[in-house]
């Protein structure tokens, strides 16, 4: 029943403001309003929840993330005549181009027994990280309208970008297995190691994508720069050739750096798992340890980094 009173009071302030004209309304006592909010236990709208609560919310939206990811992937090819076939054809053509340049024209295959499989593993695995990062730069600016329309933890979007690329990778892995078998590699128990390797890489990628997504949300210039950074990274990751050709004559620090490179670690893991022709001494040591470290540090670090700016996403 307090309504009548309230309307009368607001009327008073309204006529006062109307009399003062636009812009002349005196600002109300701000401490009063925040005090009122506190007294009735109102929370700040759109406030960032705690880290644990945030992680719980993201987990709660897991169905959204997966559906969003597969929808994005499907939407990518809806206007193409070959449709979803491109999901398989694109990595194949990609590998063919690199084979032509590095295998046939430049001949970087020296010292590598099964070059086609070696190259394909490198291209497919690096492509996973590369595509994930590139879609990560667009995951906030590209979905601004969605962000401004609905409420959900924003980390869903970069994570979905990663999952989307993971789904693409799983398809590519089928093609890749075919290539590896056709080029004469035997099917061994080590193939099972593909699964933990992909999971670790996915965790690493998700963290990286979250970091890039936050940076790109603030600095739109970043999406122009990222392709170049990724290309430099690719050439340093032993995708087309063994990085031994760099490190052979270089100081110890350089080879340590090259061997710690996460992309190189994940590619090497996959090569060791799928290809018996890649000897142990051709890949850096402590592979699994490095992979787990990268996945945990970047995965969790990226999540925290992204969460810290949760309220900022969506500001124009």
């Amino acid at each position: 029943m307090g309504e009548g009173v309230e309307l009368a009071v607001t009327d008073l302030s309204a006529s006062a403001r109307a009399a003062g004209g636009a812009g002349a309304a005196p600002p109300p006592d701000t401490t009063d309003l925040s005090e009122l909010a506190r007294r009735y236990g109102l929370g700040v709208s759109g406030a960032r929840p705690g880290l644990i609560e945030y992680a719980r919310q993201v987990w709660g939206r897991r169905h959204f993330i997966v559906t969003f990811a597969s929808s994005k992937l499907a939407a990518q090819y809806t206007t193409a005549r070959l449709g979803q076939l491109w999901q398989v054809v694109t990595p194949l053509v990609n590998a063919a181009v690199y084979f032509l340049i590095f295998g046939v024209l430049l001949g970087t295959h020296r010292g590598i027994q099964n070059y086609i499989a070696y190259l394909c593993v490198g291209v497919f695995i690096f492509n996973f990280t590369q595509q994930a990062v590139q879609s990560g730069t667009r995951s906030i600016p590209g979905n601004l309208t969605l962000i401004r329309a609905l409420h959900f933890p924003r980390a869903c979007l970069p994570v979905a970008a990663t999952i989307s690329q993971l789904q693409q990778l799983v398809l590519s892995m089928v093609v890749l297995s075919g290539i590896v078998l056709l080029t004469g590699e035997p099917l061994t128990w080590r193939w099972f190691l593909v699964i933990p390797a992909i999971l670790l890489q996915s965790m690493f990628n998700a963290g990286l994508v979250l970091i890039v997504a936050r940076l790109a949300a603030k600095t739109t210039d970043l999406s122009q720069l990222v392709p170049f950074v990724m290309r430099v990274w690719m050439y340093g990751s032993g995708v087309f050739y063994s990085t031994a050709i760099f490190s052979r004559h270089a100081p110890h620090a350089v080879s340590t750096l090259l061997n710690a490179n996460p992309a190189y670690v994940f590619i090497s893991l996959m090569r060791r798992s799928l290809m018996s022709s890649v000897p142990r001494d051709m890949v850096p040591g402590h592979l699994w340890l490095k992979a787990v470290l990268w996945a945990v540090v970047v995965g969790i670090g990226g999540f925290v980094f992204f969460w810290k700016a949760e309220e900022e996403y969506g500001r124009g």
């Binding site: 700040v44 759109g46 401004r148 329309a149 409420h151 124009g316």
Partner: peptide, 8 residues
């Protein structure tokens, strides 16, 4: 949008 917490 600001009330909804969608636009900080």
């Amino acid at each position: 949008r600001a009330i909804a917490g969608l636009l900080p």
